[in-house]
């Protein structure tokens, strides 16, 4: 298992995966930096909540497409080189699927962790006076990771099922779009859109007073029902991917 996983790591060498993640992280940093530049003392008092409110929205826009790109890059190398046939004679199919899932999943977990570090970094850079909301940051890490992994497993199925990666990318693109738009619709609608779960599971809400133009943030309890549904879907997607790949005609 470790040996075959090392093979996967060798395959991604010189394929600029770290660069891709560095670009994404840098982009997030610049986005938030532009948002928080010139904040006043009142905003510093709820700075962490503001970041925790903004991050899920940004993730809803970027991550579905980014996850489609990640899954596509991990699986498309086998389509391009026509190596799946060879690979399946050397390794157990279950192991191939597991290795590629662990590889992509590790990247996503690492990315969620980096986002948490970014939250803390922004606190330092902009001098937030609010106490670090550890519970909210942990919730953010768990919900972002879980939603990303669920989407990754779905994208994996598409990426290995279709030689032409346009299908997987189309789903990622539409997912980003539908996810973003559903944020502007009532929760009763957005809860059916899995791409919006970065926001559905967020633990910080915002009230916007149109007259005073002042935002106030409030803590909202983590929706355990939605978290449970996400977890079940995550397991189902992982299991379905394994079965589909094992039965796939190569």
């Amino acid at each position: 298992m470790i040996k075959t996983f090392k093979t996967e790591l060798k395959k991604i060498k010189h394929r600029h995966f770290p660069l891709l993640f560095a670009v994404l992280t840098g982009f997030l940093f610049l986005w938030l930096f532009a948002t928080f530049r010139g904040i006043d003392d009142a905003e510093r008092a709820c700075g962490y909540f503001s970041v925790l409110y903004n991050f899920p929205m940004i993730n809803t826009i970027i991550l579905p497409l980014f996850i489609a790109v990640l899954a596509s890059r991990i699986w498309d190398m086998e389509h391009k080189g026509n190596t799946l046939k060879l690979l399946c004679t050397l390794e157990d199919r279950k192991t191939i699927y597991l290795n590629k899932s662990i590889l992509g999943g590790s990247f996503l977990l690492l990315f969620s962790f980096v986002e948490c570090l970014l939250i803390l970094a922004f606190g330092r850079i902009f001098g937030f006076v609010q106490a670090i909301p550890t519970t909210h940051i942990v919730c953010f890490f768990v919900t972002t990771s879980l939603t990303s992994l669920l989407l990754y497993f779905i994208q994996e199925i598409l990426s290995f099922s279709f030689d032409n990666q346009i299908v997987a990318l189309a789903v990622g693109l539409i997912g980003s779009f539908v996810g973003l738009f559903s944020l502007y619709l009532p929760r009763s609608f957005s809860q059916f859109v899995i791409w919006s779960y970065y926001s559905v599971l967020q633990t910080v809400g915002m009230n916007w007073d149109v007259n005073t133009r002042i935002c106030t943030y409030y803590e909202s309890p983590l929706s355990l029902g939605h978290l449970f549904v996400t977890f079940i879907l995550f397991l189902l997607a992982a299991f379905a991917g394994k079965i589909i790949f094992e039965r796939k005609d190569i």
Binding site: V23, L65, A68, V69, R73, D76, Q165, I166, L169
Partner: peptide
């Protein structure tokens, strides 16, 4: 195939 798409986003 996919990297130019995310760059355009």
């Amino acid at each position: 195939f996919s990297v130019p798409i995310i760059l355009s986003l």
